[in-house]
């Protein structure tokens, strides 16, 4: 079914896994399954540890704008934009464990949605409504801007290199 395939050279919607891409659908088939899950686990451990390190290095007081998680999420979004464009550029030629390790594991484990949602909720419970709203909106806008900037600038760099 040709409509199930993403356009050639263009990454699919879900960077964690897209079952409409045959190679990704087959990732958990056979003996390679444990290798894929192992690199995702290793990446997740690294990403989560890096986020924890950031939270220790830049602690944020209760009731204040959660700058550290904000920075972690925005950074991770910029990097996934870069990574997915680089992987699409290689058009399946990149090592098959790069996306599971870096995209699913490291960046997925580094960034967090639950802490974001919990921090917004805590700010609301503390009646810090303005900070809660500002944090909720600023993260969404900055994260989307970062993933867009990462993807667009990487595409421009690759196009420039190809043209020269």
């Amino acid at each position: 079914m040709s409509t199930r395939e993403p356009p050639p050279g263009r990454p699919s919607v879900d960077p964690d896994v897209d079952l409409s891409v045959p190679a990704q659908r087959a990732e958990t088939a056979g003996a390679g399954r444990w290798r894929v899950l192992a690199v995702i686990a290793a990446g997740g451990a690294l990403g989560a540890t890096a986020r924890y390190a950031a939270s220790l290095a830049w602690p944020v007081a209760e009731g204040a704008f959660p700058w550290t998680v904000f920075g972690v999420n925005v950074t991770g979004c910029a990097l996934i934009g870069v990574l997915m464009v680089l992987l699409a550029e290689r058009d399946g030629a990149a090592h098959p464990l790069v996306r599971p390790f870096l995209g699913v594991g490291v960046l997925g484990g580094f960034t967090t949605f639950s802490t974001y949602a919990a921090d917004v909720s805590k700010l609301l419970v503390r009646q810090e409504v303005a900070t809660a709203m500002a944090y909720a909106a600023a993260t969404a806008v900055a994260a989307l801007g970062a993933v867009w900037a990462g993807a667009v600038s990487t595409r421009a760099l690759l196009d420039g290199r190809r043209a020269s």
Binding site: D14, P15, D16, G81, T112, F113, S114, T139, A143, L144
Partner: peptide, 17 residues
């Protein structure tokens, strides 16, 4: 919970949509 949830995948999907 931190690693189960993700902002990077969420943002990238939104961009692709």
């Amino acid at each position: 919970c931190g690693a189960l949830t993700t902002y990077s995948t969420f943002s990238y999907e939104t961009l692709r949509l």
